[in-house]
Nucleic acid binder design. Structure first.
Length: 888
RNA sequence: GCCGGAGUGGCGGAAUCGGCAGACGCACGGGUUUCAAAAACCCGCGCCGCAAGGCUUGCGGGUUCAAGUCCCGCCUCCGGCACCA
């Protein structure tokens, strides 16, 4: 323990050398004691239907944390933030009579474990086991009320046996397929990555450059579920911003596909996707993605060299460069002409040059567009740059004549809903005067009749790239035989990883498993030679269904019994960071829906209420140039900070914790110095759960002092006076003022936990303790027992200790939530602020429920000097709130 | 560029439905206690002003008896998306 710290000083008093034994609040003694007691008595075990002591009358509550990835760095202070929040809710729900499922496990497969294993030259299985042990020890000393009987690890064969089984179900439903399409390859990580793991052409983890490369991969057909993944968001209790992120990721757009003939190429038809089929009359050229398969066939000899050069340049560009150069459009004419289906063959109005340009993306829609410069900013920019025609199609009436004229002539681009001009006709079809919606309908109907177009919905979301070229992941239960792909029978699951000494990526795109020759070569079901799949599953595989396994973690016949998941699902409260907004949360929803369709799970959505905690940040100091100075070079003097070497005055900023800055707070240190209850309480007291907020070491002793004051309310300084104060040793009537304060506090804390406003709940308890401290000897045993009940979800150890000392019945962790008497929430007399012309001028005390005239009379008397000689034009009386006189 | 969220004392934050702005904590100042210090406890603490009083929730307008809260226009910060046809 650190010298001079609050708790450190406290334990010094407890040293045996002291003549009189003091009873100081000493978390180092009481916390391990209660943790051990709770574990030994299995206090937080959740009951499943069918368990001997299961009570069907009890409501269930499933409180879930995003389980951690057990990194070598150990627990970060960010972890206990969300974990404390769900623990408070879990303990509170138990007190309210719920059967609570609050489990914890380990997301143990994945790249970092393998990277770390390579660095330290130890096997990932060993480092992972060691990291799990550390995380477990760190979490267990925080006193979370997890049902540790349900602990699981995704890297445990007993677990991933079922990950493999679920994958087989996906395969059987046609939702898993092999593909050779270009994928994101990251050289530094030696693997391919899914779309959501690549940000601006760099890997999300490690920020390494990535490139598109064709490699054989397993892919899951999540796009088949796009519509349901979108639609079912509506019923979820998630933040709107998170739902928006998912909606945008799914990226639904409604429009039409239209076919264009290519002059002189009877076999070639260019199919485009457009959200504005109504603007077809304004289409003046076509643009294909450089990678579009038709480019080679339609390019004229004269343009071939230029087109191929452009294609080469586009291929060399990463997606990042492509968007970086977005300011200026680039492209090349193919020499070919397509024909607008609105006009008869040969009609010059339908003649459209075909270009290639990298602003058209091959993987979205059909990889080709019809360009309507009058109605699309990008097409407008392209047409302007290359001198292509911009036919005007609109007849706007905005009231701004100059603007209207510019739009009508095609001199100004307009993507809004404005009426079409009279010339939008081909004789058969006219949309003159129509708005967007009606014109769309008419054009698509006409195209449909002519057989060259149809309405169509597309999604931005791509299929889920579901394999990695790495060792430390779930093997696929698949063999490659001479007849093709063959599934490993259920009876042979799990397919375990071979024990390998060298699992480093070997500079080849293939997984290191390719070197495990004895493992790779096997026999198919006919006994003929076959090869195992050497790709492994991505990190998100195991985490896509762990919430299901928690319902029935020891089942060795099924991944989870239907009865168990029917009882527990959906998760009632799921807390974690925003970083999983599209990845994990979308994948889990997808797997749940597939398992639902399979009849294995009743719900269609796994997480009813989802809450994103903010980030815990830290202070750092930067110099005049804006460079962050590492904490070891910072000298703090009072409120100011200086550079230790140069003496330069530094500016305090708030930023993320980082090893480089040396501002990382280790939860273990905080527990050692102040105890787990203080850590939990401080993290909840910092501010709203959803906000990002900086860790301020100076604030921590404040909450410690609060716990100490709570302790002092019950426990005398010297042991000879008893385990609690003399006046608490038997029951008696408590002070009525304290009783009222207590009821108000219970009411406030109850409501605040409900809305996850833990900071204000703690403030309410502090107010109670401040009031109670002023009247310590008037407190009754019953009052303090109820206070301990309130404190229990937040600071369970001290609360349990106080409960025991006060002689509470049984365990506090199992005690019911205290009752509020509504009669005690109202005051007999209330003080009203009195305003004159909206400014506070006085106060008066009236009986609660006094009639308006009584209140007015008292109010007038209280501000008589202000009203003197003035005329009152209006009197506003808001019952229970205030009085306002408007005077002249 | 588009879509979210936010901006309140020296600091973290509170104000849940338009009704006393600044709860609670930190820091700071004063006091009690002490040989002294720490701890503990008590008092004070938005800004200007000796005071009376005035001003104050990023900025500018508006609605209202009353605006941190509602409306309009801007500024700044954070997050997400970003040539998605």
């Amino acid at each position: 323990m650190q010298e001079g710290s609050a708790a450190g000083a406290a334990s010094a008093y407890c040293s045996p050398a002291m003549a009189e034994p003091k009873q100081t609040y000493d978390p180092a003694t009481i916390e391990p004691k209660w943790q051990q007691f709770w574990r030994e008595h299995d206090v937080f075990r959740a009951r499943n239907p069918g368990d001997p002591d299961f009570d069907p009358a009890q409501p269930k509550f499933y409180a879930l944390d995003m389980f951690p990835y057990p990194s070598a760095a150990g627990l970060h202070v960010g972890h206990p933030e969300g974990y404390t929040a769900t623990d408070i809710v879990s303990r509170w729900k138990r007190a309210k009579g719920c059967n609570v499922l609050h489990p914890m496990g380990w997301d143990a497969f994945g790249l970092p474990a393998e990277q770390y294993a390579i660095q330290t030259n130890t096997h990932p299985a060993e480092t992972t086991a060691a990291n799990i042990a550390t995380f477990q020890r760190q979490l267990q000393r925080l006193g979370f009320s997890y049902d540790w009987n349900r602990e699981l690890s995704t890297a445990d064969p007993k677990y991933f046996r079922w990950t493999q089984w679920i994958w087989k179900q996906l395969f059987a439903r046609g939702l898993a397929y092999e593909s050779n399409a270009p994928v994101w390859w990251c050289e530094a990580l030696g693997t391919v990555l899914a779309n959501d793991e690549v940000i601006d052409g760099k890997s999300e983890r490690g920020d390494h450059p990535c490139e598109r490369r064709p490699l054989r991969q397993w892919v899951l057909r999540i796009t088949d579920y796009a519509e349901r993944l979108l639609r079912d968001l509506d019923g979820l209790d998630w933040s709107e911003s998170l739902k928006t992120m998912q909606r945008e990721w799914i990226g639904r757009s409604e429009g039409a596909e239209i076919d264009f003939d290519v002059d002189g190429h009877a076999e070639a038809r260019i199919r485009v996707f457009t959200t504005r089929p109504d603007t077809l009359f304004g289409a003046s050229f076509m643009v294909l993605a450089p990678e579009h398969p038709l480019v080679g066939a339609i390019t004229t000899p004269a343009q071939r060299a230029a087109v191929e050069a452009y294609q080469k340049k586009a291929a060399a560009k990463s997606e990042l460069d492509r968007t970086d150069l977005a300011k200026e459009k680039s492209g090349v004419f193919t020499g070919a002409f397509a024909h607008n289906p609105l006009f008869p063959k040969g009609d010059p109005r339908g003649r459209m040059p075909v270009w290639i340009a990298d602003y058209v993306i091959v993987t979205y829609g059909t990889g080709a567009i019809m360009a309507v410069p009058a109605g699309d900013e990008r097409d407008f920019a392209f047409a302007t740059q290359f001198g292509l025609p911009i036919p005007g199609i609109f007849a706007p009436q905005t009231g701004d004549a100059a603007k209207d004229a510019a739009i009508a002539s095609g001199g100004l681009c307009c993507s809004e809903d404005v009426p079409f001009a009279a010339h939008n006709t081909n004789g058969e079809l006219s949309i003159a005067g129509l708005g967007m919606a009606e014109a769309k309908r008419k054009v698509v109907d006409w195209l449909l009749r002519k057989g060259c177009g149809t309405s169509k919905v597309t999604y931005k979301m791509r299929d889920w790239l579901f394999s990695r070229q790495r060792y430390w992941g779930e093997p696929f239960p698949v063999l490659h035989t001479q007849d093709g792909v063959e599934l490993v029978p259920d009876a042979d699951l799990p397919v375990e990883l071979p024990r390998m000494e060298d699992f480093k990526p070997g500079g080849v795109p293939e997984s290191p498993l390719i070197r495990a020759r004895d493992w790779v070569s096997t026999k198919d079901h006919k006994g003929r030679p076959a090869q195992r799949e050497i790709n492994t599953m991505p990190g998100a595989a195991g985490s896509s269904w762990y919430f299901l396994r928690f319902c029935d973690p020891h089942n060795d016949r099924e991944f989870c019994s239907k009865a168990a998941s029917d009882y527990w699902l959906p998760v009632d409260l799921y807390v974690g960071g925003t970083e999983h907004a599209v990845g994990h949360l979308l994948y889990s929803r997808f797997w749940t829906k597939v398992l639902h369709d399979q009849g294995c799970v009743g719900v269609v959505e796994p997480f009813h209420k989802l809450y994103n905690q903010g980030m815990i940040q830290a202070f750092a100091y930067e110099d005049a140039r804006g460079a962050v100075v590492a904490m070891k070079d910072v000298k703090e003097v009072g409120d100011d900070a200086f550079h230790a070497q140069s003496g330069e005055k530094l500016k305090r900023i708030v930023t993320k914790m980082s090893k480089r800055y040396g501002n990382v707070i280790n939860p273990d240190d905080v527990v050692n110095e102040y105890g787990a209850d203080t850590l939990r309480l401080y993290e909840m007291y910092m501010g709203p759960l959803a906000d990002s907020k900086p860790w301020n070491p100076k604030d921590v002793p404040g909450v410690f002092r609060f716990l100490q004051r709570s302790w002092r309310l019950a426990v005398p300084e010297f042991a000879e006076k008893g385990v609690v104060h003399e006046w608490l040793q038997q029951d008696r009537q408590g002070d009525p003022a304290i009783e009222k304060a207590l009821h108000r506090t219970i009411h406030k804390v109850d409501g605040d936990i409900e809305r996850l406003a833990f900071n204000t709940a703690i403030a309410a308890m502090m107010i109670f303790v401040n009031e109670a401290t002023k009247a310590t000897e008037k407190l009754s045993r019953g009052q303090l027992l109820r206070y301990a009940q309130l404190l229990q979800p937040f600071a369970p150890h001290i609360a349990e200790e106080l409960w025991q000392r006060l002689g509470g019945q049984g365990l506090l962790a199992r005690a019911a939530w205290p009752k509020v008497d509504p009669a005690l929430l109202v005051d007999d007399e209330i003080e009203l602020p009195i305003q004159v012309n909206g400014k506070l001028r006085g106060r008066c005390v009236v009986a609660n429920g006094a009639d308006k005239d009584t209140v007015l009379a008292a109010a007038r008397a209280a501000v008589a000097d202000q009203l003197d000689g003035k005329q009152v034009v209006k009197e506003i009386v808001v019952p229970q709130k205030l009085v306002n006189f408007v005077v002249k």
